[in-house]
Nucleic acid binder design. Structure first.
Length: 177
DNA sequence: GTTCTAGAAC
DNA sequence: GTTCTAGAAC
C-alpha cells in the first residue's frame, strides 16, 4: 500500500542521507524544491496525531538532524522550511526539511503548493509548542483544510498571486539569485 | 503519496 | 485547438 512507502524507504540504507540511533534522514522521493528531506524517527510513531509529551525528546532529535542535513548540504537554514503537514498522507511521522525556492518538476498541483505555504504546513516550533502546552496535536477541521487546499496561489517571497501552477512556477524562477 | 485522463478553462 | 485542473484508482 502506498501509504506505507516511507516505512519501506526507511529500511533501505541506500536512501539514507544521515542518521542517528533514533532517527533517519532521507531525500523525498518526489522533491518539491531543490532540497527536500524527510526526517523520520525509527520508533513506530504513525503521525503527528499520535504524539504525546513523552515524544518531545524524539522531536528534539528530529530537529537536530534537520540542522545537520542542511549543514551537510552546505546551505543556510534560513533558506529552509522545517515542519509537518497538518494532513499527512503517508504513515510514519516525518519532518519536512525543504528549501524555499520550491523549484522542482515534482511540484505540480495547487494542493502541493498550499500544503507547504499555508497553515497546512505546521512549523516545527509551532507544533512543538502545541504538544508541550496541550499534550497532543489537534487535527485541523476538514472544512478549513479544504479551503486552504483550494486557496489562491500566493508567492512565498512576495505579494504575487498566480492564476495557474505553470505561471506560479515561472514566477518562482524570478526569485532565483 | 502518484498516475492517468476527461473535460473545463482559456 | 491547447493548456490546465481535479477526481478516480476495485
Amino acid at each position: 500500500m502506498w501509504k506505507n512507502g516511507l516505512i519501506q524507504s526507511l529500511k533501505d540504507p541506500s536512501l539514507q542521507v544521515i542518521s542517528s540511533d533514533i532517527a533517519v534522514v532521507i531525500k523525498d522521493k518526489y522533491p518539491k524544491a531543490k532540497y527536500h528531506f524527510l526526517v523520520l524517527p525509527k520508533e513506530d510513531i504513525s503521525s503527528i496525531f499520535k504524539l504525546t509529551r513523552d515524544h518531545l525528546p524524539v522531536l528534539d532529535e528530529l530537529r537536530l538532524l534537520a540542522t545537520n542535513v542542511i549543514e551537510v548540504s552546505g546551505e543556510k537554514e534560513k533558506n529552509f522550511k522545517i515542519g509537518f503537514h497538518a494532513i499527512p498522507s503517508m504513515t510514519r511521522l516525518h519532518l519536512h526539511v525543504i528549501s524555499k525556492d520550491f523549484i522542482s518538476p515534482c511540484l505540480k498541483t495547487k494542493k502541493h503548493w498550499n500544503s507547504f505555504t499555508t497553515k497546512l504546513f505546521i512549523d516545527y516550533d509551532k507544533l512543538y509548542e502545541e504538544l508541550e502546552k496541550t499534550g497532543s496535536v489537534k487535527r485541523i477541521e476538514s472544512t478549513e483544510a479544504k479551503d486552504l487546499e483550494n486557496s489562491p496561489l500566493k508567492c512565498n517571497h512576495c505579494s504575487f498571486e498566480a492564476k495557474t501552477i505553470p505561471s506560479l512556477k515561472d514566477h518562482l524562477l524570478s526569485h532565483l539569485k
